[in-house]
Design a binder for these strands. Structure first.
Lengths: 119, 119
DNA sequence: CCTTATTAGTTGTCATGTTAAGTATTATTG
DNA sequence: CAATAATACTTAACATGACAACTAATAAGG
């Protein structure tokens, strides 16, 4: 019954990198600004994280040809492999937490946090 | 209707330092471990924060005579002055948030977060 | 006692959070 | 079309978060 921390330790990556991988896995290649939004990261943090991930072969980056301000990021092979290797266990852990905490309560909690954030 | 960030910017200190000041203000002189618990900080972070606050004259530290492993921290004059200057406004902001979000909902939210944390 | 374990802090290292400033590219406006 | 603004990042600088290793002091066990 591994926790998320253990999963990430096993995978050898940070929570942030995992979130980035998941965003890319679910939405396909995207520009960095959108990754930042979906992964709850500021652009300066994302810049560094992506540089590291690029060196590690988890992702690749290239300029958008139609708007050369943008950089499009996509999963590289090592990134896809990581996702394949751990996504099932990750889903299991999420489901477990949801079950133990209560799906309804979890939804309520997330809604409240969003409200508080808007406030 | 200034937010907390503005208050802190005005006071020229970080959220963490403000939390430390409040812990000291409410509980009087205490050892660092207890400050860390109440202010939600890890000891290494607290060590550095207190060093900075000591230089700024906000707090003072001295060894506990009965147990010389412990360091007792207390508010210094500048720290008390900061508290006096901003505690009222701080309370106002808290009350405002509580009112806008709903006292009941806020309590529920905090309880849920605690539960989730225990999980 | 003496060794070992525990407690309280500190220090080091590295990643991230955060704000501000800088660069390059594209869009707008007069 | 030229000057200006806006967008999409990057870089820099500093504080903080997090984990590990370390020191000093006290407590526990044999």
């Amino acid at each position: 019954m591994g926790s998320f921390r253990e999963l990430l330790a096993e995978a050898g990556i940070s929570e942030q990198k995992w979130r980035v991988l998941r965003v890319l896995s679910e939405g396909g290649p995207v520009e960095q600004t959108k990754i930042a939004e979906q992964a709850c990261l500021l652009l300066p943090s994302l810049t560094r994280i992506l540089s590291a991930m690029e060196k590690e072969g988890l992702i690749s980056r290239e300029r958008d040809s139609s708007d050369r301000r943008k950089t499009i990021v996509e999963l590289a092979e090592a990134g896809e492999a990581l996702i394949r290797k751990h996504s099932e266990e990750s889903a299991q852990i999420s489901a477990d937490i949801e079950a133990r905490f209560g799906a309804d309560r979890l939804k309520t909690l997330l809604d409240m946090l969003e409200d508080l954030n808007k406030l």
